[in-house]
Write a protein that binds this DNA or RNA. Structure first.
Length: 590
DNA sequence: GCCGTTTTCGGCCCGACTGTTTTCAGTCG
């Protein structure tokens, strides 16, 4: 397995931990340099190894001469003397034990070294044993309470079947909605907002952040901790509280007065790197930023809303989805932020599966064409496309396929007749065709001629090498009847990593052949991935957002696709299904 | 260890909460 960005980021974080264990004071800034380099690499849209091959390592943000040298050695020899030397000083169990809530590098190191657990295989079991004997409470700086908290932390970690698993954006938004409703029942609550990665609409989120304006903070914090899903209270203070819900997910509450609420919104919407970049910018201009306001010449300037906050820093208001320190601060200063695509800009949905049995080997939808069209009309769409999976290759001749397609078209026409006739909506007869292992397509040209448009997607042979995968996608992009590449990385969040393609080649071909790349809004896919959307937009690639719905409610997933587009800096003009019916049809037929 | 509309040297984001303390260290976001 070749070393990838995530692994490099993990390694650098481990090195940072080594430094803080060994002598945090001495290495204070070195530690944050390693952490920032790790973040930068983890969120890089390109593999760092590739960048190294091209000799551009020192152009990556957060990587300078020192890290370039170590990474160069790592890539050439598979290991770096410098990293290995540091790692050898800190037992592996330290990194494991740090997964426990409230246990950081110092505590983990101290427990393991003082109790001589460095050679133990199951560190959690060994620490549990020691804690039950009261050995941890005896250590300097620990007590009975912290011993109990560590035991609780290990227990809750082991209750979680998959440790550290992030939740889907859709799951997080739904859970947060429950909390918001509950908090709003309190009369003293003036306003509730969902912040953090949920507000930035990241495709997966690790926790839920909620903020409240209230006249009685302690009452609201009490109420928050008593919500029926809360299984554990982690922290509870005057201004904030943290709980675990369903034994799985962390929820943080922040309380603030109305006067400083704008600063709080900025602070807890983040991301961390956006905040750091904001503060560095403020510092360069002799100001200081916190969740209470902006300190200028010894006086704190307060802000009721975010617009005022950013304006004071001479910036445009930055949409939450862009707050990732990906150039948004520079753009906001120059007043050149993009006008991001909105859900209301979407005129049609082209990726919809019906329940018409077309004898496919993949999953069928569960709603009929009639009820789906009805729902689409209610959503205000001007056009939709039915894109069922193509019939299975092994069980059908191409003549069978054409026959099935004809029957399906009759069914679609009949079911949508009244809607189309009344002029409410137009319907495209499309298909989601498989890109086979050799790059050919699962139906022949004659069948494709029968359709209004083709989405081509990979549904098999996911483990091919990068070059072969790229060849498959590029050959589909070169087929005259294929207009859209569906869910281009094939990832399934929490289940399957996406395949890596040579994106430069794919995007260049898409532009050259006037094809579109799909942003799939199915919550588990959200694919094309946001940072690749940004790359694509930068190269002028046309995009289509599709819900990939398998029933009429699935049409609502369009919003998640739009969020991904927004995170990728996409404007209305980048998304083809923001065009009118006539323009879209013209493109489809071109 | 990184980085430059004050700087190739001398800075480096800010604050809450907890536990074990007797003024603070560790952890977290």
């Amino acid at each position: 397995m070749e070393i990838n960005n995530l692994k490099i980021a993990e390694l650098l974080r481990k090195i940072a931990i080594c430094y803080s264990v060994l002598d945090e004071k001495k290495h204070f800034f070195r530690i944050s340099a390693y952490e920032r380099a790790a973040d930068s690499i983890e969120y890089s849209s390109k593999e760092i190894r590739q960048i190294w091959k091209e000799g551009e390592l020192d152009k990556v943000a957060g990587i300078g001469r020192g890290l370039s040298k170590y990474l160069d050695e790592l890539f050439r020899k598979g290991r770096s003397m410098h990293f290995d030397k540091l790692l050898s000083k800190v037992p592996e169990g330290v990194f494991e034990l740090m997964k426990v809530e409230g246990v950081g590098p110092k505590s983990a190191y101290k427990i393991i070294m003082e109790l001589k657990l460095e050679k133990k295989k199951d560190i959690f079991e060994s620490v549990e044993k020691a804690a039950n004997k009261g050995e941890i409470a005896k250590l300097d700086g620990f007590g009975e309470k912290s011993e109990r908290e560590i035991l609780k932390g290990i227990e809750s970690l082991e209750n979680r079947k998959e440790k550290g698993k992030r939740m889907l954006l859709s799951t997080g938004l739904n859970l947060a909605e429950g909390f918001v409703g509950f908090l709003k029942e309190d009369n003293s609550v003036k306003s509730v907002d969902v912040l953090g990665s949920l507000r930035r609409k990241m495709s997966t989120v690790g926790d839920i952040d909620i903020s409240v304006i209230t006249s009685s903070a302690s009452e609201v914090i009490e109420r928050f901790c008593k919500y029926n899903k809360v299984t554990r209270v982690l922290d509870k203070g005057d201004k904030k509280a943290s709980v675990v819900i369903d034994g799985l997910y962390r929820v943080d509450l922040m309380v603030q007065d109305e006067d400083s609420y704008g600063s709080l919104l900025v602070h807890f919407t983040g991301s961390k790197n956006h905040n750091i970049a904001l503060r560095e910018y403020a510092r360069r201009n002799r100001m200081s930023v916190s969740e209470y306001g902006i300190k200028n010449k010894g006086k704190i300037e307060k802000f009721k809303n975010e617009k005022g906050f950013y304006k004071y820093l001479k910036m445009e208001w930055i949409p939450p989805e862009l707050r990732e320190d990906g150039g948004e601060i520079e753009a906001a200063l120059e007043k050149k932020l993009p006008e991001l695509v909105k859900l209301l800009d979407i005129k049609g949905d082209l990726h919809i599966h019906s329940n018409f049995d077309i004898e496919t080997s993949h999953d069928l939808g569960t709603s009929g064409v009639g009820e789906i069209v009805d729902e689409a009309v209610k959503l205000g769409y001007k056009y939709i496309g039915f894109s069922d999976h193509s019939p299975s290759v092994s069980n059908h001749t191409q003549r069978d396929v054409l026959e099935l397609l004809k029957r399906r078209k009759e069914y679609i026409d009949k079911e949508s007749y009244s809607f189309v006739k009344s002029g409410k909506i137009r319907v495209f007869n499309m298909l989601e065709v498989d890109i086979m292992a050799d790059g050919s397509l699962s139906i022949n040209d004659k069948c494709m001629d029968f359709l209004d448009g083709v989405i081509a997607s990979i549904h098999s042979s996911f483990r091919q090498k990068r070059a072969q995968m790229t060849k498959r996608v590029v050959s589909a992009l070169s087929h005259p009847r294929v207009k859209i590449i569906g869910h281009p990385t094939g990832r399934l969040l929490g289940e399957r990593e996406g395949y890596d393609l040579n994106w430069d080649e794919v995007f260049d071909r898409a532009v050259k052949n006037d094809k579109a790349i799909e942003i799939n809004g199915y919550p588990m896919r959200l694919d094309l991935v946001d940072y690749l959307v940004k790359e694509a937009v930068g190269k002028g690639v046309k995009l289509v957002i599709g819900s990939d719905s398998h029933d009429k409610w699935g049409l609502f997933n369009m919003r998640y696709g739009v969020y991904v587009g927004r995170r990728g800096w996409a404007e209305k003009a980048d998304i083809l299904n923001c065009m009118s019916y006539n323009k879209f049809k013209l493109w489809l037929n071109s």
